[in-house]
C-alpha cells in the first residue's frame, strides 16, 4: 500500500495535477475520487481529460451519470452521487466499461468500494480554504503503485 498526499493551493493546481496524471495515463487506469461537494473532483477530471488530449468541454456527470470523452485514450467519467444501490451501478454497465481500454474516473467512487477493482487508485479531496485542497492518494496494487511513485517525483510542478 502506498499512501501520499498533494497540496494544491489553487484551482489551477488541482487542474494541473489532473493534467499530469492524464499525460502519464495508460489504458485501464482507474481513479476513484471522493470528498465533499465542491472539493474539486470535476475540476480534477477537467485536467485529466486535457492531459489525455481531449479538447472539448468537461462537465459534471451528476445528473447524466456518465460522460464519454473521445481522446486518444478515451476517458470514461462516471458520477455515483445520485446512485443508492450497487445494482444501479451495475445496471449502467459499469463492469463492461472497465474492460474497454480507456481511463476511468469515478466521482463518489467511495460509495460502492466493492465495485472498484483492486488496481483502483483512490484520490480523496479535502477542502482547506476557498481554493486550497489536499488530495490524498492511496494505491494498493502492484500495477498502480508505480503510477503514484511517478507522480511524487514530479510534484510540485
Amino acid at each position: 500500500m502506498l499512501k501520499t498526499s498533494f497540496n494544491c493551493d489553487t484551482v489551477e493546481l488541482t487542474h494541473q495535477l489532473g493534467l499530469m496524471i492524464g499525460q502519464k495515463a495508460k489504458p485501464g487506469d482507474i481513479w476513484s475520487l471522493s470528498g465533499p461537494l465542491g472539493a474539486g473532483k470535476t475540476q480534477f477530471v477537467k485536467g485529466l481529460a486535457k492531459g489525455l488530449g481531449f479538447e472539448g468541454m468537461v462537465t459534471s456527470p451528476t445528473f447524466t451519470l456518465q460522460h464519454i470523452y473521445e481522446s486518444p485514450i478515451p476517458l470514461y467519467h462516471f458520477d455515483w452521487y445520485r446512485l443508492n444501490q450497487s445494482k444501479e451501478v451495475e445496471d449502467l454497465g459499469w463492469m463492461e466499461w472497465l474492460g474497454r481500454g480507456g481511463v476511468v474516473a469515478v466521482e463518489w467512487g467511495d460509495k460502492f468500494p466493492k465495485l472498484l477493482p483492486p488496481a483502483t487508485i483512490n484520490l480523496s479531496f479535502e477542502i482547506l480554504s476557498e481554493e486550497g485542497r489536499r488530495l490524498s492518494v492511496e494505491a494498493a496494487h502492484p500495477e498502480s503503485i508505480p503510477r503514484v511513485e511517478e507522480l511524487i517525483l514530479c510534484w510540485p510542478p
Binding site: L37, G38, T42, Q43, M57, T59, S60, T62, F63
Partner: peptide, 18 residues
Amino acid sequence: GSTRDDAAGEAFDKVAKL
C-alpha cells in the same frame, strides 16, 4: 454558451444537500 462545470439544476440540488 453552456455550463463549464455544474448544470443549474444540479447547483440547486447540491446546495440543498449542503
